[in-house]
C-alpha cells in the first residue's frame, strides 16, 4: 500500500473519531451546565476551560474568544474552522483525506462521509444546532458510528483496513483520556478522593455519559458514582469498547497486522511502544493510578500515544512526506560562461 494512502486512511479515521468525541464531550457538558445556570460568570468560565483544554487548543481558543462561555466554547468546538479540532474542521479534514484515497474506500463509506460533510457545512446544520444542540450532536455521533459500522461491514481486511483501525483507536484512546481528565483535574494531586458533593457526582456521571458508559457502569458498579470506579472503567476495563486499555489493545493488534510480524515481541518502534503501554494498562490497579496521581498518569498515556503515532509515521509513512529545508529540491548551481579577465 502506498505510504501516502495509508497516511490518509489513518487520518480519515482519526478525524471522524475526533468529530464524534468532541460532539460527545460538548453534548454532556452543555446538558450538565444547564444545572449550574445560577452560577456566576467566573465560575462558569473556570468550568468551561478544562473542556477546551481537553481538546488541546487552549491557545487557539484564547486568540478568538476573551471568555469561556457555553456559547463561545460551543462555537469554537463545533463551527470554528480556525480550530483544527472543531467538529466542522475535523469532518472537512476527514473528507479531504477520504477524497485523496477514494479509490481505496468503499462507495458506501464515501457516500456517508460525503453526506456528513455536506451536512456540517449546510445552513440547515446551524439551524438544527440553534434549535436543539443534542439533535445536532446526535447527527454527528450517528454518522460516525455508521461510518465505523459501514467500514466494518464492507471493507476488505487488508492493510488499509488496519491503518483505518489504528487511526480510530489511537484517537479514541487519546480522547477518552482527555474526557477523564476534564474532571480529574479537580481531584487531589495524588491519592484517592474523598466523598463527592452532588454537583461533583453529576460531573462524573457526565464523564461516563460522554463515553456512552453510564449504562455499562451501572451494571458493573451500581448507581453510586465514585471517581475511582469511573477511572477504573474508562482506563483499565478490558471489555468496554471506549476504555483506554481496550483501545490500546486494538491498536496493538492493528499494528501487528500491519507489520505481519507475530512471532516476535515487536518488529518496530511503534509496536514496541504500543505493546509496552498495553502491558502497563493491563498490569496496573486503579489504586496505583490514584497513588501516583490520576492527572499525571493520563498525561503519560497521552504522551505515549503521541509517541506511538510518531513512530507509526516514521516507520510506514515518513519517506513519502519528507519536508523541511534539508529535503527541498534545489537546482544545481551553474557556472556562467565567461572568460575571467
Amino acid at each position: 500500500m502506498l505510504s501516502r494512502v495509508a497516511h490518509s486512511l489513518y487520518w480519515m479515521a482519526r478525524y471522524i473519531e475526533r468529530a464524534e468525541n468532541v460532539a460527545r464531550i460538548l453534548d454532556v457538558n452543555l446538558q450538565l451546565f444547564l444545572e449550574f445556570a445560577n452560577r456566576d460568570d467566573d465560575d462558569r468560565h473556570d468550568r468551561w476551560l478544562p473542556i477546551v483544554r481537553a481538546t488541546g487548543d487552549l491557545e487557539v481558543f484564547r486568540a478568538h474568544h476573551p471568555r469561556a462561555t457555553a456559547a463561545s466554547v460551543a462555537e469554537f468546538m463545533v463551527f470554528q474552522q480556525e480550530n483544527p479540532n472543531s467538529i466542522v474542521a475535523s469532518v472537512c479534514q476527514a473528507r479531504e483525506n477520504a477524497r485523496m484515497v477514494r479509490d481505496q474506500i468503499t462507495m458506501e463509506t464515501w457516500e456517508e462521509l460525503n453526506h456528513l460533510y455536506l451536512f456540517v457545512l449546510s445552513p440547515q446544520a446551524r439551524q438544527i444546532w440553534l434549535d436543539s444542540p443534542p439533535d445536532y450532536f446526535n447527527q454527528i455521533k450517528t454518522s460516525s458510528l455508521l461510518l465505523g459500522g459501514l467500514s466494518a461491514a464492507t471493507h476488505l481486511r487488508n492493510e488499509g483496513w488496519w491503518f483505518n483501525l489504528a487511526g480510530r483507536f489511537i484517537e479514541r484512546a487519546d480522547k477518552t483520556s482527555r474526557i477523564l481528565d476534564v474532571h480529574g483535574q479537580a481531584l487531589p494531586a495524588t491519592g484517592l478522593p474523598a466523598r463527592l458533593s452532588q454537583a461533583d457526582a453529576l460531573a462524573w456521571v457526565s464523564v461516563l455519559r460522554s463515553c456512552s458508559a453510564w449504562d455499562a457502569f451501572k451494571s458493573l458498579y451500581g448507581a453510586d458514582v465514585h471517581p475511582r470506579h469511573v477511572a477504573e472503567m474508562l482506563m483499565l476495563n478490558e471489555n468496554f469498547p471506549r476504555s483506554i486499555r481496550f483501545c490500546v489493545e486494538r491498536l496493538d493488534e492493528a499494528l501487528r497486522q500491519i507489520s505481519g510480524v507475530s512471532d516476535r515481541p515487536f518488529s518496530n518502534e511503534a509496536e514496541k511502544l504500543c505493546g509496552r503501554l498495553a502491558a502497563e494498562l493491563r498490569f496496573t490497579s486503579i489504586e496505583e493510578v490514584f497513588n501516583a496521581g490520576l492527572h499525571g498518569q493520563l498525561d503519560q498515556i497521552q504522551l505515549h500515544l503521541n509517541q506511538i503515532g510518531e513512530a507509526l509515521f516514521q516507520t510506514y509513512i515518513f519517506h513519502a512526506f519528507e519536508t523541511g529545508p534539508e529535503t527541498r529540491r534545489v537546482q544545481q548551481e551553474e557556472q556562467q560562461q565567461q572568460q575571467l579577465p
Binding site: 527541498r328 534545489v330 537546482q331 544545481q332 548551481e333 551553474e334 557556472q335 560562461q337
Partner: peptide
Amino acid sequence: YADVAPVRGTYKGTTERLMTV
C-alpha cells in the same frame, strides 16, 4: 544558454554550497 548549460541538475538538500570550476 538554456539549451547547452555544461552542467545542469537538481538535488535534495541544502542550498549552502560552493561551486568551483
